[in-house]
């Protein structure tokens, strides 16, 4: 199955810029479907980025993050070719992980 995570990590000398797009419904638990039944909350709670065995960025999310979340950040201390591991877990125990090479 294709990964739910799409990542672009580009090194610009000292700084690595990371852009991530994740496929996830991010249901708030407040919306009703066409039959009038509440769609239960289903959202990513924690998203972690690790590089060279160290967490470089951690996101804690609530239901107010848009569907198919996007996040961008930058960090220092990595170079081209290093592995960047991205993992998320949601409130229903779902999770996904991907390892990308910094370009």
């Amino acid at each position: 199955m294709a990964s739910s995570i799409r990542v672009r990590a580009t090194s610009n000398g000292d700084v690595t810029e990371v852009q991530t797009l994740i496929q996830h419904p991010m249901d708030t638990g407040l919306v009703r479907d066409s039959k009038g039944e509440t769609i239960p909350a289903h959202y990513i709670q924690e998203l972690k980025f690790a590089c060279n065995g160290k967490d470089v960025f951690v996101a804690n999310w609530g239901t107010a993050i848009s569907k198919d979340p996007y996040v961008k950040f930058s960090f220092k201390g990595a170079k081209k070719g290093d592995d960047l591991t991205i993992s998320w877990t949601d409130n229903k125990g779902g999770s996904d992980q991907i390892t990308a090479k910094i370009a």
């Binding site: 951690v58 609530g62 950040f73």
Partner: peptide, 23 residues
């Protein structure tokens, strides 16, 4: 409905800036 939308942690070496999309 719930005020807190997102909270990000910045270890040493991560640049203090973040972009995201909220509802």
């Amino acid at each position: 409905p719930n005020a807190l939308a997102a909270s990000y942690k910045f270890p040493d070496g991560t640049i203090p800036a973040v972009a995201n999309r909220l509802k």
